[in-house]
Computed example of a mutant assay.
Amino acid sequence: MPDRPTGSPKAVDTLNFLKTRIVRGDWPINSRIPREPDLMAMIGVGKSTVREAVRALAAQGMLEPITGVGTFVRSRTPVASVVTDHLAEYSLEDVLVYRRALEMEAVRQAAVLRTDEQLSQLRAVCDRDRRITAGTPFAAELGETPGSFHHLVFEASGNRLLAGLYVAVMPVIRAAVRGGRLRLGADLEVFDADHAAILEAIGERDAAAAARAMATHLDHDLVV
């Protein structure tokens, strides 16, 4: 996988600028990065240079442009596109089972290994999500991805392989949702309650309770 765009030194510098902000967490997972004119002013480069860098990071799975909405952070590290392509060859039922297995193990490990800082981050995301109402742009984005709460659970698990596999499966999930082949199985209020139960179990370092809460949540989540 290429680590930088081909082209001018400005494009390389722009890619490194964007990647640093992503890796450092300045732009959290599933957040929208500044719009193109803002990036041009921030970095001091032209439109074509910004687009080249964004395309390169999108090819690495770190960014995802959504037409008419913006460009979103999807991973803090490059994602092996070969894994995503491989998963796309399977049925959606198989992909959902695969994702469920990853989520269940990640939440068990997160309950045991999470740090106080990671717990605070999970609480902050839960508080933010509770303020999101139906019909808002971010509510639509939550419908296309389980959101940063799940990514934080994987980070709290401390298992980079689990996190990488999860990030690799999400483009398949998002494409299926946008194509109408997957739909949400519950509304945002149910999701908020599910996340609160998962958060409580992680806070108590109760791996069994965390797994039960995650299983309940996944039963409410995306369905074919």
Rank of each mutant, 00 (worst) to 15 (best):
E89V: 13
R35K: 11
S81Y: 10
A101Y: 07
Y90A: 14
K19N: 04
F17V: 00
V97Q: 15
N30Y: 15
A110V: 02
A101N: 14
T67W: 08
D94Q: 14
A56T: 14
V107E: 01
H86R: 15
P78N: 03
M42H: 04
V50N: 01
S75Q: 09
D26P: 00
I22P: 02
F72S: 07
I66W: 08
I66G: 05
G70R: 12
A80E: 14
E52D: 12
Y90I: 09
G25C: 08
Q109N: 12
W27P: 09
W27F: 11
M104V: 11
G25S: 07
E105G: 09
G44M: 04
R76M: 03
Y98N: 11
I66M: 11
R100F: 02
L18S: 01
A80M: 06
P78G: 02
L15S: 08
M42D: 06
P37W: 08
D13V: 01
M42F: 01
G68I: 07
A59V: 04
M42N: 00
N16R: 14
S31Q: 05
I33Q: 06
V83F: 12
V79L: 04
P28G: 07
P37K: 09
L18F: 03
V82C: 08
I22K: 05
V97P: 05
T14G: 04
I29C: 04
F17L: 00
I22E: 02
G25N: 07
E36H: 12
N16Q: 12
L39W: 00
R76V: 00
G68Q: 08
P37N: 09
N16M: 06
V73G: 06
V69D: 07
S75P: 05
R74Q: 13
V97H: 15
T14E: 00
L18V: 03
E105Y: 02
T49D: 00
K19A: 14
D38Q: 13
P34G: 02
